[in-house]
Amino acid sequence: MTVVFSMFLLTLLLITAIAVVHAGNLFVAVMLSGIFSLLLALNFFLLDAADVALTEAAVGAGISTVLFLGALSLTTDREKSPSPHRLLSLAIVAVTTLAVIMGTLDKPSFGDPEAPVQVHVAPWYLETTREAIQIPNVVTAVLSSFRGYDTLGEVFVVFTAGIGVLFLIGRHSGTKPQDIGPPHGEPSGLRHYLIPRLIGRMLVPFIMLFGLYVQFHGEYGPGGGFQAGAIIAASIILYALLEGEKRALQVLPRSVLVGMISGGALLYSAVGVAGMLMGGNFLDYSVLLDDPVKGQQIGIILIEAGVGITVTGVLLSIFHAFAARGRF
């Protein structure tokens, strides 16, 4: 039954992807790619990846759509020229697809427990998490403890991307900062959008509460800093869309956001340095407390908080950078 359902979802995913590429109006393409992300999240859930599904739903369907719409409002939503060399590209793509499919024929069958990828480090991670870290969510344990270096690198990539966006379009010289979202346009818009505003205002605290739950429950269930950052940023973006960008900036001014971007990354690195100062290796949490297991858990909570703060700061700064450039 699950097999049929997952094949159905995968086929739907393919159809949506082709529709995204085929759509002539960019607005339609962006909306379809939001649907694509939700379908992808469902597929991830069926593939036992609850954490990834949560992230994809919050980031792909929520924040990515808002950012693309922001970019569209700054440029244009019409695709002007038809593709040149369309047949040539189609031919190349068809040949490459066949080559990739040929390559998959040698792969072990889907879900095979004896496949090489399943027998190497995964069992070790599962066992060691049970003994040395003692938290239920292995994904969080691997993310923040075993592969702490990798995650630190990822946080700095997010950090760098955020700084890059601020460099490119963060300064709003020449154009006046204006509100985006429903309340712009003719004044009659406000009256017409009364219901969404009221309901949205009601939902914002719930979304934020859920974000905090995901942040601090990440050791026990699906969740963690990356997801929580995306969800909290989404709640504040919703607030900005409802009440105008200025009100959102009063809640969290730009200076605070910049502080969050660097503060989260700094907190992460500081935990690593603290480990060094207390006689361990960089990002070795076992030495943080007398009990190594407790030390691991404290370290994971701290660095997840750092990740959450940075991701929230970066996503919100990017949103504000796009919103402030609006010239409606």
């Binding site: 980031v59 993310l143 995650t151 997010v158 990356f226």
Partner: peptide, 8 residues
């Protein structure tokens, strides 16, 4: 998980 956030 990390790649999705880096991707956006």
């Amino acid at each position: 998980l990390t790649a999705i956030v880096v991707g956006i």
